[in-house]
Structure formats: structure tokens, C-alpha cells
Design a protein around this nucleic acid. Sequence first.
DNA 1: ATTATATTTCAAAAATATTTGAAAATTCAA
DNA 2: TTGAATTTTCAAATATTTTTGAAATATAAT
Lengths: 168, 168
Amino acid sequence: MEFNEAKNKFVQTWGALGSQWGINKTMAQIHALLMVSPEPLSMEDIMEELQISRGNASMNLRALMDWGIIYKEYKPGERKEFFIAEKDLDELAVKIAQERSKREIKPALKVLKDVSTGVKEDKSKEAKHFAEQTSKLYDFVLKADNMIEKVTEMKENWISRLVMKIMK
Amino acid sequence: MEFNEAKNKFVQTWGALGSQWGINKTMAQIHALLMVSPEPLSMEDIMEELQISRGNASMNLRALMDWGIIYKEYKPGERKEFFIAEKDLDELAVKIAQERSKREIKPALKVLKDVSTGVKEDKSKEAKHFAEQTSKLYDFVLKADNMIEKVTEMKENWISRLVMKIMK
DNA sequence: ATTATATTTCAAAAATATTTGAAAATTCAA
DNA sequence: TTGAATTTTCAAATATTTTTGAAATATAAT
């Protein structure tokens, strides 16, 4: 396998994987490209390599920065901005987990709490079962979210290191 | 809040959440509906409640069954098929984790392995960095996948229960 | 202050994904 | 078997998401 072939395969695959996870293809591809690039890349470089428009590149670079998983860099003497990826994978995982928790899990928790406690006066079988199920779901999602938080604190936490070892 | 309002809110929210996670809206809505329904529902019931077509219902019910998170049930004397959701939330989490691992993580691992070890003869800085990064990524994703596996085995495993407790 | 360079914005176009509905296939009671 | 009830399939229609590209905005060197 030639280097460029391998790089391409990696970038494409990462893009496809991203879209399965609700992240758009270009965003995942840009991230993949920056992950394997030893040098910071300019917007031009990225447009060129991925064959995408300026607007597309601009918007997705911003989105990646909002997620906190890529950074801007300035080169002395250069007018352009350059970008690099967070390359510490633990740090990357933490940021992604935090971002998804904030965007997706927290709002879901709010709704679950509202609906599980919000129905008054209705004593029907349906209403009772509904309250029961949604409240269980609330507890469960809350527990899962807490667990993510705990795992993301792992690095500083000796007991979690132990846990990791046990889990192999 | 009235019961039907609450139910509707829940089903809608679950649908929206689903699409953020790469699961289509109807599929997530059907699942939500079955989760909170005390009785098995027929395809007609579901079409009625969610205002969707027969084809849509049929396809998404099948997809949910493929995920192993809903089941068919037959009522004596009834010709129709009825559906119920897996209501044990631990079991649900296990199935979802297994399914995503199978569909998304395993194929990604394969590509990572291929590309991280597949580039021969190229001694350029780029090629070396690429091999390094993708190989780190392979180890990382593999570890994450193993951890998911471990967590899904928790129920029978006393030490993991302890871990859960420690994690609060 | 002017101009050249770089980035962002956003409406329209293109690409993807989902949904519909009617025809085909299946199932089972008579 | 036959045929009514039910489910599945899939091409076409709709809806949603992503991408483009050109104009607007920002930045910085002269």
C-alpha cells in the first residue's frame, strides 16, 4: 500500500464513521487529516487535499474548534491561519464525551425529569406505567452520564487507574 | 401537564435525540412509544399514534428487531403481530453497545490496523508520523471497545459491581 | 487610508436520507 | 386450494442535511 492510498483510506473511513455517529462527513475528514498531519495545515491545504469548497472548510473548521478538538496556530511571517488537531487521545476522548453530554444528554435528562414527574391527576394504567418507565429511564441516563463524567476524570484519579487495569 | 401531552413530548424528544445519534427519527419514536406502553402494540396502533405510513412502520419495526431491542408477540385469536420493547434498561444498554461495536467499531478497527501497518518502503516524515498516529489510534479504539465489552458483562461480575459503586 | 489577502456568511444548489403508498408476497383460516 | 388479512418491498416523492460559491466582512501590510 502506498502512503497516499493509506492516508486516503483512513480519511475516508473516518468520515464515514463520523456520519454514522451524527458528525458530518467533512468535519470528521478534516479532523482525520489533521490527526495524521505532522505539520499544521492551512485552510487552503485542507480544501486542496479534501477537494472541498472554502465555505465548507471554514464552517467545519469552526465547528471542530467549538468542540475543542482542533486549534489555530499562527506561523511567523505568514498571514494565513494554520490548524492542528488535539493529538492526545485521552484528551480527545474527554472533550468529545463532555461535548456530547452537554449537547445531548443534559437536554434529554431535563425532558425526562419533566415528563416523569409532570403528569398530575391521571390515575389510568397508562399514565402510571408511563411515569414509572420514564422515571426509571431518568435514573438510568443520569447514572450513565455520571459514569462518563467519572471516566473523564480518570487521569488524575488513582482508583480509576486500578479499575482500568482490572477491566484490562 | 396532561398525560397525552407528556407522552407526546417524550416520544418527540426521544426521536430528536435518536437522530443526533445516527438513528432515524421514526425508529427512535417507535422505540420510545413501546417503552412507555404497558400493552403490546400492533403496527396499526403505531401508525395511528405516530401518524406514519405502513411501509415506514414496517421497515423501522424490522430495524428495531434487528437491533434486538423490541420483540414480536402474538395474541391468541388475533391475526396481527404485536410488539413490545425490551424494558430492562441494562439489557437495552448492552444490546445497543454490542450492536454499535459490531457495526461501527469493528470495521473501523480493521481499517486502522490495515493502514497503520500497511505502508511499506516509505521513510518520509509524513509516512512515519501517519503510521505512528494511526497505530496509537488503533490501540486506543481497541481499548475503548474492550472496555465496552467489559462493562456489558457487568451484571454477572461482582468486581464490576464494586467498580460501579465506586464510580457512584 | 488604500489595497491585497484571508475568512465568514448565507441563500441557492446538490447530495442524502427518509417516507409514502400501492403492488407483491406471505400467512393462515375456512 | 382459495381468498381475506396482514406484512414487506421498493420506486418515486418529500424532507433534511450538506455543500457550494460569491458577496460581505475582517485583517494587516504598505
